[in-house]
């Protein structure tokens, strides 16, 4: 474990050095990120000028959820994206052998080799949004609420990582599906909206089949002091199962890979 933490620190350092070499690129991409966040905030600000609540959610409550959405966006684009993007490439160009021969866990190397800093503002602005929303809504979560919320966010991130990794592994079987790495993150639009907004069978699907709505709703609910234990447990189950499944899928995929090449 210690070795992996050390490795990850090296990866971060290396990525940071690279980012600093191209400061202007960093600036432009930052502008894109901040612009996106800013326009989103503006949109919701504007929505609540005209209505007081949406399906039972007041403005501060929805802003808390939006804050989690920004934080998760950082995790998606900053932490995971460039790795997930490279996995199909690595497989299709036969560069996997280089990864496989290293005395380091293959899944770790494939998943966490680089980190992007362009979206780091998302993390900061997301946290600021949450704190700001709590204060204007006069919502005072207890320490336990905050801890549970953080834990729920962690569980959500595990689920997102594992589910994304599994979808990207399809590249082992289907050569060259362009944009395969973009399939999972397209769900992020789903979790920009709270779970209760969805109706009917779709709500059931987005909760119990693909629990995309839960990743922002569950952490937000803890902070907003209206936790739903069943939803939290659902998320935990999905996270654990997906994580197990992801290592299993990789194992099967590698067997398939070694059978296919050569």
């Amino acid at each position: 474990m210690k070795k992996y933490i050390r490795l990850y620190i090296i990866f971060i350092k290396y990525s940071f050095m690279q980012a600093m070499m191209y400061k202007a690129d960093f600036m432009i991409w930052s502008l894109v990120t901040v612009g996106w966040i800013f326009l989103n905030l503006l949109f919701y600000q504007f929505l609540y000028l005209n209505v007081t609540e949406i399906a039972g959610w007041t403005k501060p409550q929805l802003l808390v959820l939006l804050g989690f959405y920004f934080v998760i966006d950082f995790f998606l684009w900053g932490v995971l994206w460039q790795n997930m993007r490279k996995i199909p490439e690595i497989i299709n160009r036969g560069q996997l052998d280089l990864v496989l021969t290293k005395p380091v866990n293959t899944q770790f190397l494939l998943s966490f080799k680089g980190i992007g800093f362009d979206d780091i503002h998302g993390l900061l602005i997301g946290l600021v949004t949450i704190v700001y929303a709590l204060s204007i809504g006069n919502i005072k979560p207890s320490v336990a609420d905050i801890l549970l919320s953080t834990a729920a966010l962690g569980v959500a991130l595990v689920y997102i990582y594992a589910a994304w990794f599994i979808t990207v592994c399809a590249a082992f079987w289907f050569d060259r599906i362009e944009n395969l790495h973009l399939l999972f993150p397209s769900l992020r639009q789903i979790w920009r909206v709270p779970q209760p907004f969805y109706k009917g069978i779709l709500q059931k699907i987005l909760t119990f089949v693909i629990p995309a709505t839960l990743v922002t709703t569950v952490p937000a609910q803890f902070l907003l002091r209206k936790p739903s234990l069943p939803l939290f447990i659902t998320l935990i189950i999905f996270a654990v199962v997906s994580l197990k499944l992801s290592t299993w899928v990789l194992k099967v995929a590698l067997r398939h890979y070694s059978g296919a090449s050569s």
């Binding site: 070499m21 191209y22 400061k23 202007a24 690129d25 600036m27 432009i28």
Partner: peptide, 8 residues
């Protein structure tokens, strides 16, 4: 110079 900065 390399990168966007150089271009701009």
């Amino acid at each position: 110079e390399p990168g966007l900065k150089g271009s701009i």
